[in-house]
Computed example of a mutant assay.
Amino acid sequence: MAGLNVSIAFFFLVIGVCQALRWLSKRLLSPGAYVCLARELAGSLQLCTSCLELRMLAEIGMWGGGFGPDVVLTLLFLLFVLHGASFDGASANPTVSLQEFLLLESNLAATAAKLLAQGAGTGMGWAVTKLYWSWELTHFHLIQNLIASECSSSIHTSLHHAAFVEGTCSFLLHLVLLKLRQSRPMYQVPALAATVTFLTYTAEQFTGAFFNPALAMATTFRCSGNSFWDYIQVYWLGPLAGMLAALLLYQGNIPRLFRKNLLYSQKSKYKIPKARVVAHVEGEELRRKRKGEKNDSEPHA
């Protein structure tokens, strides 16, 4: 249990440091530089360090600490609630940034800057976590250091099935994101945390359930068992395809590429109730009849 307490303290320390980084950069940098660079870098750093430590607990804690997957899933949900509350609008996910670009919410330069910041943030997160593990504060970290050089791939199924799993997770995540875009944070944050927890519980046994290309690169691309191209297919092409499918299904088109709605017909914004239309037509017919009767009753000269 002491090892779990150390990990929880590490989570809070990382969130506190990243929050301080956001606070400082918001005051020193221009709004554009903060949104595109500092905010995404801090969010990716926070996400990567937390997920690496949590994955270590999931892999070693079951037999080294005696706690089951329910503990890890509970921590995952709570962490994503804290991430959602502290990220300050950062996505820390390349597919989300590309979705914003395709929705015309971000230009090419801003999107490229976000992708670079996300890559740098996850790289820093991996380095910080490795340094933290090298201190061997718990027996979990001691075991992790012993097996770190021989990590194996997170893909435990065929490549096509793995790409389909990551794509499906990304598809469902982006559908929820699109649906909740205008929602209040008090509803949006727990809904996204619950979605991520459910998808992780469902898909973890097949691919590790990343559905975040930057996070996957920092976590599993170095491991043996699959080639670099295999990882690209599963952890980049799969989530990108899922994002595009979710955007096309939700919007009916991809605004950056074409304006025409391919799936849904354009309907009038204002609809007249059918009963009102019928009543209006009947009223017009009655008015015409009365007018005709009046003309017939007038004497002819």
Rank of each mutant, 00 (worst) to 15 (best):
V35W: 01
V196Y: 12
S30H: 08
F101S: 05
A117W: 07
A110I: 02
G119L: 13
Q99M: 11
L159K: 04
D296H: 13
R288Q: 13
H300I: 08
F210D: 05
P255H: 10
S227C: 02
K267F: 12
A301S: 14
S86C: 11
C36T: 12
G84N: 06
A112F: 09
L237T: 11
T111I: 04
V165R: 01
W133V: 08
E298A: 11
F164T: 14
L54N: 08
L192F: 07
S158T: 15
T157V: 15
P31G: 00
S158K: 04
T200D: 09
P255C: 05
L82Y: 05
L175Y: 02
F67C: 00
V196T: 04
S154Q: 14
E282C: 10
A194Y: 04
L142G: 12
A110P: 00
A148P: 00
S91M: 10
L173N: 09
L159S: 07
W135I: 02
W126H: 09
L54C: 06
G65Y: 05
F10I: 05
L142W: 01
N5F: 10
P299T: 07
V278S: 01
V281Q: 13
F80S: 04
S134V: 02
G32P: 03
L4H: 03
K267H: 14
Q233C: 08
G64M: 11
D230P: 02
I143L: 12
M62E: 12
G252K: 13
A117G: 08
L103R: 15
R256D: 00
V281M: 11
F206H: 14
G65P: 09
K130H: 07
L257D: 03
G61Q: 09
M217N: 05
V277N: 07
V234Y: 10
A216H: 03
L249R: 03
F10P: 00
F210H: 11
N145D: 05
W133K: 10
A209T: 03
P273K: 12
C48E: 13
H156P: 03
M124Q: 06
A193M: 03
A214R: 07
A38C: 12
